[in-house]
């Protein structure tokens, strides 16, 4: 009997450990940090400068894609601000050479998803709901799984449509 109990307890903890490990692994898949051409500190821009998300992500309210801000937006300030910082020098170089910057895309949706930022913003969904507290991140990483069940739960809570063709294309 004692042996059985021991086995049961060990088995229970082993299973729980496995589960935790598995979840961690799963979480690790989408939270991994990606290398970016410029170390862009969202925290500084939001907290110190006090910029709103829509200041730079100019298409987020009226189009499907949030899109990376055009360099012209950056250069509105960075012709004067912190021009000597090594990171800004990279930016200035792109600007003077007239070369677009290619960022690594953090939040990826699969090929069959039809997603529009515009509708979510119009419905009053805060950016942080999906993107997390970007103002605390020195480097942006994914904090939500962005998996179907996650989307559907929120849609259900807010009486958003759950017709498959709303999101599947």
């Amino acid at each position: 009997m004692k042996k059985l109990l021991f086995a049961a307890v060990t088995g229970y903890f082993a299973l729980a450990g496995l589960l935790v490990f598995g979840l961690h692994f799963h979480y690790g898949v989408f939270t991994k940090r990606l290398l970016q051409p410029i170390h862009f500190p969202h925290a500084t821009h939001i907290n110190k400068v006090g910029l709103a998300c829509t200041k730079c992500h100019i298409t987020v309210t009226n189009s499907p894609a949030a899109s990376a801000p055009p360099l012209a937006v950056c250069m509105e300030c960075h012709t004067k601000v912190k021009t000597e910082s090594p990171e800004i020098k990279i930016l200035t170089e792109h600007w003077t050479k007239q070369e677009p910057i290619e960022w690594s895309k953090i939040h990826q949706l699969p090929w069959h998803v039809r997603f529009t930022h515009k509708r979510h913003i119009a419905a009053g969904v805060d950016c942080t709901v999906c993107h997390g507290e970007v103002n605390t991140m020195t480097q942006v990483h994914q904090v939500r799984s962005l998996e179907m069940g996650w989307c559907v739960s929120c849609h259900r809570e807010n009486n958003a449509p759950t017709d498959c063709w709303t999101c599947h294309k």
């Binding site: 990376a68 055009p70 360099l71 677009p100 290619e102």
Partner: peptide
């Protein structure tokens, strides 16, 4: 394949994305 890059264009594009 899903595009893995997000591009900062130089100026505001003529058209909205999409």
């Amino acid at each position: 394949k899903v595009a893995s890059k997000l591009v900062s264009q130089l100026t505001t594009p003529r058209l909205l994305p999409g």
